[in-house]
Write a protein that binds this DNA or RNA. Structure first.
Length: 298
DNA sequence: AAATTCAGCAACCGCGCGGGG
DNA sequence: ACCCCGCGCGGTTGCTGAATT
């Protein structure tokens, strides 16, 4: 007998998240930290299942997430890591701390797969590979060096959570501009925190998570929230938040310096093997196509 | 200008794993 | 040792906007 679906309850909402729901979720997580997802819907009054809340947080609201515009270097890393690890998107994402596994997976399925297919078809009759990419490490194989997906994911969460409040600030910016006064008041109601007071709370109670994660300080949050800051950062061109259509807001995201990126990668990734180190080197991405020709996996 | 097709991506679903009782 | 629960992961679906006819 199988487990009943987590969303079997009547009255559980599905589909796209609204800004109001995001605010509620973010407010709650700002207070309690991520985790214990089971209790999130109950405590927030959100009509969402715990899974949905977790997904929304990890794929969208979590601070430190970079969206869109995959650089050639990132592209190269994804291609190599996919060849190395197979469809272990969480493991791959752990090497790209600013990207979510979902994002990488989508990018792979929509862009890279085609790209490589094209390349392969251009190449002279590659030796017959199986349908799905045969990773050098099949799903049950041992993946090199301590990167069980779960441990990596945990690691990643630990570092990125403390990294910034960009997504949250974007969310608030978007919401403050687009949301009608009434709904704002509604959000300020009984089982949620008014956005206006959220910032104050940030300032008043910077706190660390039980597992050592540190919430962004009030000062940092405040400075990130400042519109001047937001104006000065790079624009990603596409929507930064996942609201489709009218809710979409183009707000830039402060980009980390290359050094920060490297630091983050080093902090989250397990000790790198020779090959993995190579992946991080500049120029590795440029060799991807060449390598793909040598070892076609698609 | 309208209809149709395509591409991108957010979100859902089901399964497996690990921890706690 | 076993069961249950919560969580994370990978695959898939379906909606939306863009491109094409």
């Amino acid at each position: 007998m199988g487990r009943p679906p987590c969303c079997e309850k009547v009255g559980i909402k599905k589909g796209p998240w609204t800004p109001e729901e995001d605010i509620i979720l973010v407010s709650y997580i700002q207070q309690h930290g991520p985790g214990n997802w089971r209790s999130v819907p109950t405590n927030t009054g959100l009509l969402r299942c715990s899974k949905s809340c977790r997904l929304r947080w990890t794929n969208y609201l979590r601070p430190g997430i970079k969206r869109g515009n995959f650089t050639p270097h990132e592209e190269g890393m994804i291609i190599h890591l996919q060849a190395l690890l197979g469809n272990k998107w969480a493991a791959i994402a752990s090497y790209l701390p600013q990207r979510t596994d979902n994002d990488i997976k989508n990018y792979w399925n929509t862009h890279l797969k085609k790209k490589l297919k094209k390349l392969n078809s251009a190449a002279v009759d590659p030796p017959e590979p199986p349908e799905s990419a045969p990773s050098r490490f099949q799903s049950n194989d041992k993946v090199p060096a301590a990167d069980s997906p779960s441990s990596l994911a945990g690691n990643r969460a630990a570092t990125t959570y403390a990294s910034s409040a960009e997504n949250i600030s974007r969310l608030l910016q978007a919401w403050m501009r687009s949301s009608p006064e009434e709904s704002r008041r509604k959000i300020g109601g009984e089982n949620s925190i008014a956005p206006a007071t959220q910032q104050q709370q940030q300032q008043q109670q910077p706190k660390a998570e039980p597992d050592g994660r540190e919430l962004v300080s009030g000062e940092e949050f405040d400075s990130i929230l400042s519109f001047e800051n937001l104006k000065s950062v790079n624009s990603w061109g596409k929507s930064s938040l996942g609201y489709r259509g009218k809710e979409e807001v183009n707000v830039g995201e402060k980009q980390r310096s290359e050094n920060d990126e490297a630091t983050a990668a080093n902090a989250t990734a397990p000790p790198l093997s020779f090959l993995e180190k190579w992946l991080f080197e500049e120029g590795a991405a440029g060799q991807v196509e060449e390598m793909m020709e040598l070892s076609p996996v698609f």
